[in-house]
Design a binder for these strands. Structure first.
Lengths: 330, 330
DNA sequence: CTGAAAGCGCTTACAG
DNA sequence: CTGAAAGCGCTTACAG
């Protein structure tokens, strides 16, 4: 089954490849007779012609492919929703999105040997060597959550920190506002998440300091009922009355641990997660959580990508991208 | 920042582009002097040369890119793990994996205008029109879970059904084996999952029939405590003593619903999920579930992809890819 | 209104 | 041991 080229279509419709290209691309400024146009379209359809992406990219000097590089850490429904929306957003502008998994297993540079993206969007910061390699390959790097202040179109680790801190701060302010005064932070056991956890924790600390509350206790809570119970026993003994969890999964472990040590939620201890995963509202008790407005985030990421590609100023980050969902656990 | 080409490297090292290509690709059968080789390598490194994937693909007539097309439905940690492993597996053979989200929003054919994959792996069956378009574009389609019987390297909806049915059968046999006789099937409310749910349900029905048990009751259980309670009330009244859930998320909803109507788990009703997501072991009570051995599945999918590309016979599916994890809920 | 020709960057027979 | 040249499939000035 030989692949059909534009030359085949030209031959079949009795015109030149130029005309085929004009018709199929709807090139503006050309005037092809309706009859010719119809013949070309018919031939292309009949032969099942699909233009070669490689040739088109080579000739144009740029592709319409955007590669999203996923962080090293596990992906949940929130990121999935983000990717879906981003794909739809960018498709409206003629850009195709493809996602790279397995980051960290081998250098990103290997990928550029096999594919020529126009831009690469990172959900976590790139390191300088990666940035350099991309730019040398003519690829535009785009940072997620970058440009919150509208300043820097380049990936900036500090910008991530800002968004993450906001989450921690919101969690802490919620419990402090409900009269809880002895807070603990439940960090994830997965070390790949340590960076994010540290940033969210910084937000928690800031909120505690601002409210004049005690420094929060901190411990890793693995997704295991027994291990979680051990941590919760210590916390209960220390008089902890509120737990901020890194995300809903960690929060679920905290709920299991508290149950095991006989602490009542929310009477004795209030718990707040992050993400609003489906499991949150089904938990016992239903879990209060911080919801990231992922559609807003995706739309912004799409806007940042387009602005960066166009060389325009990066739009400011929308103000409210996180909000609290209060349920039975707080 | 002009992009560096092999001609630049040739000029900088005082050799022809031919020699640059030979050195950089380690082309076998060529004998380049060590001194020349070193000069070329040094120049490429110094200039930050990255070969053009588009040109290489055009020239070679094929790329080393494999695109995985995600199904229309929501992605959880299981699929994430599968993609990670598949990416690593295929990278060992020089293939790069990129993942397409947002299926169904627009035709896959649009994607082939922007990228030239060597193969496309579908986690759900392709429809005939898509298959046709891919083949005409010179792309090799590969079906997930295909070739279980080693017969058909082409995507085959029936092969999916086989794997899915096995899951439902395993769930049902477990509860029937524990003396439960009045089973119910908790289907997902998300209509995009209806196809899979129907296949798993078929396995449940087969197991019930084989054991001489009554036909299972069937209802959709949304991820909402109140809605789930409504369903569970009906089931409790009907004397249901065992519930098979489409996946862990649905099972969590069932647990919430049963709790709401005062049914004890597992004393009154046993519950079994699918996936072994982190939330399963943290549920109240900890959830029994069917675990898919996703690494095995990923390795097999990689093997199927390679065999299909090489025109070899597709390897048989490994025998045990699902297993039961028994916890407190059954 | 349409076609002949150049050229994107690479790889690879082929010639020396 | 190394280079000149062709050609992958496309788009786009340019010529008619």
């Amino acid at each position: 089954m030989a692949v059909v080229t534009s030359a085949d279509v030209a031959r079949a419709s009795g015109v030149s490849r130029t005309t085929v290209s004009y018709v199929l691309n709807g090139t503006p400024g050309t005037t092809i007779s309706a009859a010719t146009r119809a013949r070309v379209l018919e031939a292309a359809e009949r032969l099942g012609y699909a233009p070669s992406a490689a040739a088109r990219t080579l000739r144009r000097g740029r592709s319409d492919l955007v590669v999203v590089v996923l962080p090293h850490w596990p992906i949940g429904p929130v990121v999935d929703a983000l990717l879906d929306r981003l794909t739809t957003d960018l498709a409206e502008r003629g850009l195709s999105v493809l996602v790279h998994h397995g980051r960290g297993r081998r250098p990103l540079a290997d990928l550029w040997r096999h594919v020529s993206p126009r831009a690469v969007v990172g959900l976590a910061p790139f390191d300088p060597a990666e940035l350099d390699a991309m730019r040398r390959a003519g690829i535009t790097p785009v940072g997620a959550l970058v440009g919150r202040d509208g300043r820097d179109p380049a990936p900036d680790p500090a910008a991530y920190a800002g968004a993450q801190e906001g989450i921690g701060r919101l969690q802490a302010e919620h419990l402090l506002g409900r009269g809880r005064s002895r807070l603990a932070y439940a960090a994830p056991a997965d070390e790949r998440l340590a960076g994010f956890a540290a940033q969210r924790l910084a937000g928690v600390r800031a909120a505690c300091a601002a409210a004049g509350a005690a420094h929060p206790l901190v411990a890793e809570v693995p997704p295991d009922p027994d291990a979680a119970a051990e941590v919760c026993r210590v916390w209960a003994a220390a008089g902890v009355d509120g737990v901020l969890a890194y995300n809903d999964e960690v929060a679920l472990a905290v709920l299991a641990g508290l149950r095991a040590v006989g602490a009542r939620v929310p009477e004795d201890v209030a718990v707040v997660g992050v993400d609003d995963e489906p499991a949150a509202r089904l938990a016992v008790p239903p879990l209060s959580t911080v919801q990231q407005e992922i559609e807003v985030e995706a739309d912004h990421l799409a806007a940042v990508t387009l602005a960066t590609l166009d060389g325009r100023a990066v739009p400011p980050h929308p103000p409210t991208s996180v909000r609290l969902v209060v349920r039975g656990s707080s």
